[in-house]
């Protein structure tokens, strides 16, 4: 074959079952219908787990012998910090898929992950600084973990800012996805350099969590961590469904959806 032949095709190979699934997800009506079935369940599981986790964490778990009641902020802070990292990785991963296969639902999901991840980062920072007041005696210490979270917040803000600044939504999503990917490559480097910088300048680092955690304190933490993952999934899918409807407002499948959802008396 002539190596110079330039081909531009939007038909994609459909062999690998995983790739097949991703492409199915890429079809807006299919995505809308498929996710509509289980998104209420995600919200339900999140609610149950949160109530259970908070009950165990805030009421059942004993107070810490060193920190007293204040340690309970951990049940928000630690899962939020975990989520902030996980969502960034997922966002960049979905952005990668969106860039390679040009799948619109993936673009939408990657871009809708950004505000959720930024919110978790902000929660982790705010609770961390509130926790720092009684333990360190000040609201802010340039602790390695807090500093990493702060840089992560900037990375999120960059992705959101770039997405909002570009005019055409699909182009904006591709650009922001690329930025998220670049950020993902840099994230470990940033994380380790900040950690190392902290030991270099402070000598002794102050650890937030105690070294020994009683199982009665650990369980609520794990439950809250799982609950927040469900929150992310539920929120992301709900947002993405709305974005799809907004984008495809003039397509026929959207009209069907809206007609189905509208009660007879309004029509």
């Amino acid at each position: 074959m002539n190596p110079d032949t330039r081909k531009m095709k939007t038909d994609r190979p459909r062999k690998n079952p995983l790739v097949m699934f991703i492409h199915k997800l890429g079809s807006p009506p299919w995505f809308y219908g498929f996710t509509g079935k289980f998104v209420p369940w995600l919200w339900a599981v999140f609610t149950v787990l949160t109530v259970w986790g908070l009950y165990l964490g805030l009421i059942k778990a004993p107070p810490d012998y060193l920190q007293g009641e204040i340690y309970r902020i951990m049940y928000i802070h630690v899962p939020a910090a975990w989520m902030s990292m996980m969502i960034y990785v997922l966002m960049a991963g979905m952005g990668f898929i969106a860039l390679i296969w040009r799948i619109r639902t993936m673009e939408i999901m990657a871009m809708n992950s950004a505000p959720i991840g930024a919110a978790f980062t902000l929660i982790a920072l705010a609770t961390g600084s509130l926790w720092g007041r009684p333990t360190w005696g000040t609201y802010w210490v340039w602790d390695a973990r807090l500093t990493s979270e702060l840089v992560l917040l900037f990375l999120y803000l960059g992705v959101i800012g770039l997405f909002k600044a570009m005019d055409e939504p699909r182009k904006a999503a591709r650009a922001a996805s690329l930025l998220a990917l670049v950020g993902l490559v840099n994230l470990p480097i940033i994380h380790f350099s900040v950690k190392w910088w902290n030991t270099l300048h402070q000598g002794s680092s102050i650890s937030l969590t105690g070294s020994k955690i009683d199982p009665s304190m650990l369980w609520p933490l794990l439950i809250m961590a799982v609950a927040m993952k469900f929150y992310y999934a539920a929120n992301l899918i709900t947002r993405s469904r709305v974005t799809l409807l907004q984008q495809d407002l003039r397509k026929s499948w959207t009209r069907d959806v809206i007609e189905d959802a509208t009660p007879e008396r309004i029509l």
Partner: peptide
């Protein structure tokens, strides 16, 4: 207004270089 956004995009990526 790309120039204003640019600093937000790249400064976090510059952190390790600045530190080292």
């Amino acid at each position: 207004r790309g120039g204003q956004l640019l600093s937000l995009l790249v400064f976090p990526l510059y952190v390790p270089i600045l530190i080292v």
